[in-house]
């Protein structure tokens, strides 16, 4: 498997702000790669440099063996970019939008209409893009990015401002796009999105990559506590502490009593013996804990 994207020591400054401060990574062909971080972490700038929309101050980028800067007409047909704002032509219907974009790549209208079906918008084809819902507009913009069958697809915060149902639909769509062998790179500030979709995730903050790897590996590598929650009142705090042992921390917020422990098995066994498993919740570490661990602060999108 070849490397589709190679980024080396990328740097970009805006005034005194180091938006991107020495970023290096590479993306394998067919991989689903995520760049995760809070707003202002430098994700979008990194992505824009890779897409060829911005020039880096230093460092090199190679996409499919070519340099994206300056504007490279040989590379452009091979990449598809879905931008943060839905960058449509004003007052055109969904079908007119995608046909217009298709024509820019020399793709016939018939194929454009097919792509509308792929993203499930065939019954909205005659609707003006301004009147589509957030999720529909997002799917249309992905369809417009895919209409020329690119090898690499870039998505910048695709699920921002979508309702939960639309997000799930979008995830299914993105998985199916990736399963056809296309390389997908996305930025997100949703931890669950990165965890659910990406083969590998780069966690960014303040323009630097803090950690890079498969989400599961990052979480496992954390060696963090497992949280076991019960309804308040089922067992007293002191009793819970005794039951869990001195290494565990027990908190009670008035609704749930939570035991955080690195050895959940004996605790669960003990709870089972006392027949207290009803309504119990067990949560392992997530990327959120990884972020907390890396930065020392709570993750806030």
């Amino acid at each position: 498997m070849g490397q589709t994207i190679i980024v080396q020591d990328l740097r970009k400054r805006y005034g005194d702000v180091h938006a991107v401060d020495g970023v290096s990574f590479s993306v394998e062909q067919g991989e689903f790669f995520g760049i995760l971080g809070p707003n202002g972490a430098g994700k979008t700038t990194t992505l824009e440099i890779i897409e060829g929309l911005r020039q880096a101050d230093a460092g090199t980028v190679e996409v499919l063996g070519m340099s994206p800067w300056p504007r490279n007409p040989r590379l452009l047909p091979k990449i598809g970019v879905q931008l943060q704002a839905s960058s449509f032509f004003e007052r055109l219907t969904a079908r007119e939008q995608i046909r217009t974009f298709a024509s820019l790549y020399g793709i016939p209208a018939r194929k454009a209409d097919e792509m509308l079906t792929v993203v499930g918008l065939e019954d909205k084809a005659g609707t003006q893009s301004e009147k589509l819902s957030g999720g529909q507009a997002q799917r249309l913009s992905i369809a417009c990015a895919l209409v020329h069958d690119p090898e690499v697809l870039f998505l910048d915060e695709p699920s921002a401002s979508l309702d939960p149902q639309a997000r799930r639909n979008l995830w299914d769509l993105l998985r199916s796009i990736n399963s056809t062998g296309r390389t997908v790179v996305l930025t997100t500030h949703y931890l669950d999105e990165a965890e659910s979709l990406c083969d590998r995730v780069a966690i960014m903050d303040h323009g630097k990559i803090l950690e890079l790897g498969p989400p599961a590996a990052l979480v496992r590598g954390l060696d963090s506590a497992t949280h076991i929650s019960l309804a308040t009142g089922v067992v007293a705090v002191a009793a819970a502490q005794e039951l869990a042992g001195p290494d565990a921390t027990v908190t009670d917020d008035g609704v749930s009593l939570t035991i955080a422990t690195r050895t959940p098995a004996p605790v669960l066994a003990e709870l089972a013996e006392r027949n207290l498993l009803t309504g119990i919740q067990v949560r392992g570490a997530t990327l959120e804990d990884v972020f907390l661990h890396l930065t020392g602060r709570e993750y806030r999108a």
């Binding site: 897409e51 943060q84 960058s87 032509f89 974009f101 820019l104």
Partner: peptide
């Protein structure tokens, strides 16, 4: 504003 210009810049036109 709507980034349509960007989108055009990313197309081989």
């Amino acid at each position: 504003q709507k980034k349509t210009l960007r989108r055009l810049r990313l197309a081989p036109v």
